[in-house]
Design a protein around this nucleic acid. Structure first.
Length: 490
RNA sequence: CGGGGUGUAGCGCAGCCCGGUUAGCGCACCUGCUUUGGGAGCAGGGGGUCGAAGGUUCGAAUCCUUUCACCCCGACCA
């Protein structure tokens, strides 16, 4: 491994890619646009997945699994939905290969052409709602609250590790409700679950609110989102929750009988977050030395670097730390001792790259004095502490790192969120400073498009706490319909 | 699909213009010794159909033709 990574200042995109590859979160796969999630990256994903899975279950949902393949005809049942996804669907047309004529390879056997072609799911609304039609008959079947963890495929033009790949992992919740109010409540509830996941586990502060018409999910009545600011001040959509109204119920004829024996269409929601969140963690907290992982999801929370010359030293270090480490592990702290034979200096850099929150250095000097050297990844602070205090100190310090990372990210977002009083000022800010701009919008698609074309900035979110009353539209000067956040986005 | 670029060891590259020993360098890898508190040193070693096919030539990584692949920039997007 070559030393270091491109600095953020020099080239943020290169910094990101270097880091993801060198910290061994992921690697490029032989297929363009798709990636391999390596064990370290997958462990990170598993930790956030497990936290979210618990929250999803605690809010009354159950997991299930729906198939990867969707009949092509299903996609055309909901007009807007087709419009949104048709251009990026992988299609299965055949089911058999045969040895090619020259005997050197394989080719598609033309006689194996499928009657009806299959779509690899870009999202599962259609297949799920085809099943819900069978499962929902009575008001007693509602609400139906199902989540699935799955991979989906969207044939993207431009891809980036974790942020946008042709195949990605996510969870998608799909619920059915008797009333519009209930569906809306559900969509908002799950959005808040996402907010908690982002803030409490990933230490990524997010804005919550509504998407504009042009940014909303194809087939939804309303799309709610959590929106985060990355280290280069660009916005990242970190999760979405859709109030689907009766669109899919209509398309798939999903009705239920009410108490008084009337037939009604059900109301739906869907909501999802993906492996993109791993990218959000990288770009929210990472620095020029590498990752800085929030302890709550860090695969390793404490790494121990033994500094030894001889086998005897090694045995001494093992003895020295035995009770401390077992006590920490018993308390659920994820500890790893790096016994590989690289030099200590190499290991320091390596684990800093990997973002482990706390590093302990233990060598002959420390053992003599009854101490260890403790280094914090987030601040770079090094201190010498009594080995006997570690079991009490470390959990506290992990908590402190978790909340300080969050506070730091909030401070950064605040420092880079501005209001603009004129369109000239708006353009100047987007061009020269980046970040979020909070301003009035007249609510028209024309304005939104015009701003996008001229500045590349889009409406990221109409925040729940908007107050458009005395605002005018930044572009048209008309009275504002909404107060919105504009930014350049990933 | 439009514009630009690159294919030489696992990775990053030089060599190509101007054809000529055994195709070279850095990193990584292997072995040994010495090392180890911020990316260790020395010595030795393994690894290549020079993207592919055809051509010119006594001779091609280098020149010509064809072809394939990938990357970057634009229109789409969790």
């Amino acid at each position: 491994m070559s030393k270091g990574i491109t600095s953020q200042k020099h080239d943020y995109a290169a910094w990101y890619t270097d880091l993801v590859v060198k910290a061994k979160l992921a690697d490029y796969s032989p297929v363009r646009g798709s990636m391999v999630i390596r064990p370290y990256g997958f462990a990170l994903w598993e930790n956030l997945r497990d936290a979210l899975d618990k929250m999803i279950k605690d809010t009354g949902h159950v997991n299930a699994y729906f198939p990867l393949f969707i009949p092509k005809s299903f996609l055309s049942k909901e007009a807007e939905h087709v419009e949104g996804f048709a251009k990026e669907c992988a299609v299965v047309t055949h089911h058999r290969l045969r040895t090619s004529k020259d005997g050197k390879g394989v080719e598609v056997d033309p006689t194996s052409k499928l009657e009806e072609e299959l779509i690899v799911r870009p999202t599962s609304e259609t297949i799920i709602w085809s099943m819900y039609k069978k499962w929902i008959n009575s008001y007693r079947d509602l609400p139906l609250l199902i989540n699935q963890w799955a991979n989906v495929v969207r044939w993207e033009m431009r891809t980036r590790l974790f942020l946008r790949t042709s195949e990605f992992l996510w969870q998608e919740g799909h619920t059915a409700h008797a009333t519009a109010e209930e569906a809306k409540k559900e969509a908002l509830k799950m959005l808040d679950v996402y907010r908690q996941l982002a803030e409490d586990y990933l230490a990524v502060p997010v804005l919550t609110g509504l998407k504009s018409e042009s940014e909303k999910f194809a087939g939804a009545e309303h799309t709610y989102c959590i929106e985060a600011m990355m280290g280069d001040k660009r916005a990242l959509q970190a999760g979405t929750s859709h109030d689907l109204g009766q669109n899919f119920a209509k398309a798939f004829e999903v009705t239920y009988q009410t108490k008084d024996n009337k037939e009604e269409l059900v109301y739906a929601t869907s909501w999802g977050v993906s492996t993109r969140l791993v990218g959000a963690v990288v770009m929210t907290h990472g620095d020029n030395k590498g990752l800085r992982l929030p302890p709550n999801i860090a695969p390793t929370q404490v790494v121990v670097i033994p500094i030894t010359r001889t086998d005897e030293d090694r045995a001494n270090v093992e003895n020295y730390l035995e009770s401390t480490l077992s006590e920490l592990k018993k308390n659920g702290v994820r500890v790893h001792v790096d016994w590989t034979d690289s030099s200590p200096g190499f290991k320091f850099n390596e684990w800093e790259m990997k973002g482990v929150p706390i590093r302990l250095e233990v060598g002959p000097r420390d053992m003599k004095s009854g101490n260890v050297v403790l280094a914090r990844r987030d601040t770079g602070e090094k201190s010498i502490v009594d080995v006997a205090t570690l079991t009490a100190l470390i959990p506290k310090m992990l908590d402190a790192i978790q909340s300080e990372l969050f506070e730091q990210a909030k401070t950064f977002r605040k420092a880079n969120t501005h209001t603009a009083s004129s369109y000239t000022e708006f353009k100047d800010m987007i061009k020269n400073h980046g970040g979020f701009i909070r301003c009035g919008w007249d609510g028209t698609a024309e304005t939104e498009t015009a701003i996008k074309e001229e500045t590349k900035a889009t409406i990221r979110v109409i925040p729940f706490d908007e107050s458009p009353d005395n605002l005018t539209c930044i572009y048209s000067g008309k009275p504002a319909k909404h107060e919105v956040i504009f930014a350049k986005a990933y």
